[in-house]
Amino acid sequence: MIEVRDLSIQIKGKHITHHIDFTITRGNITSLIGESGSGKSMTVSALLGMLPDDAKVSGSIMYEGRNLLDASDQEMESVRKQDVFTIFQDALNSFNPSVKMGRQLYAFSGERVGDSLPVFNEKMHVILEKLGLSWEVVEQYPFQLSGGMLQRCMIACAFYVEPALLIADEPTSALDMVLQKEFIQLLIRLNEEKGTTIFLITHDLDIVAKAAHEMVVMQQGRIVETGKVETIFSHPGHAYTKRLLKSRF
């Protein structure tokens, strides 16, 4: 679905990524794993066309036959709006603190796909119920909800939009263990029920083991290993992957 080839990102003369190659296959959960500072987030920014202005990029990101790096701002905007849904690390900060949840959920979901408010209310009601959230959340402000609830609200929007690709950038690092598990279950559900392709960025191998089909291991701006999760877990090829696996509890 997305093929990243020879992608190098340079910011102010500093190499963030070196000639990286990986593929996100349709219908799968692909996980990008690596320590902090390994260039994961910048890779995501490149996918979304959201790199800072002073970044130099080379290589290609092929999505449905076109190179996203050459796409115009308008094209990129339509891709971001219609095809991709992104969940960030900190759900609390992903919502405007002074606007009630209902309006924001609408902006993130119904409005994007062009649904009217009544249609949104009806559809969202069902989705929130399915995810174990009460309808009352729409009348509340973000700071009145817990981190887990907010992250579930985000997932609810993803369920609503049914994007071609869901990018989740460290979605669980602000949650406790129980909520992490719940959240991963929801991601798997989204993948199984709607067939959504998910690109999951994380530094937590347990999450990869639980959720992902394929994984990409990144270290200091380079891809050191890619492949099926089971294969890599049973036969890690690179020294860094071995170390990662060893450091698991």
Partner: peptide, 28 residues
Amino acid sequence: EEEFIKMANMLGTPVWNILWGHLLRNSI
């Protein structure tokens, strides 16, 4: 620099809306 502004930018929210609804509103 907050994530919700980045979210709004990503979704192509018009500039006046970001200024009014996101930035000014939270500066009140």
